[in-house]
């Protein structure tokens, strides 16, 4: 049976580098480079760096 085709986009999780456990979810093209952006973290109440979490498996 043929494998199901992978979607063109993937949902990724950007986690706060302030180590608060806060994260935001984005959708990016599968072939795109990993996302990273400055966003507001409500736990530390500051704008901090958010980096995309490494995806595991064959997602």
């Amino acid at each position: 049976m043929a494998k199901k085709a992978k979607s063109r986009t993937v949902a990724v999780r950007l986690i706060s580098m302030a180590m608060t456990g806060y994260f935001r979810t984005f959708v990016r093209p599968r072939a795109h480079r990993p996302l990273s952006m400055l966003k507001y973290d409500p736990v530390v109440k500051k704008q901090v760096l958010f980096l995309e979490q490494k995806r595991s498996g064959n997602k």
Partner: peptide
């Protein structure tokens, strides 16, 4: 702005 970033969190 992340183009050459290597240390991605797990």
């Amino acid at each position: 702005h992340g183009r050459g970033w290597k240390k991605w969190p797990k």
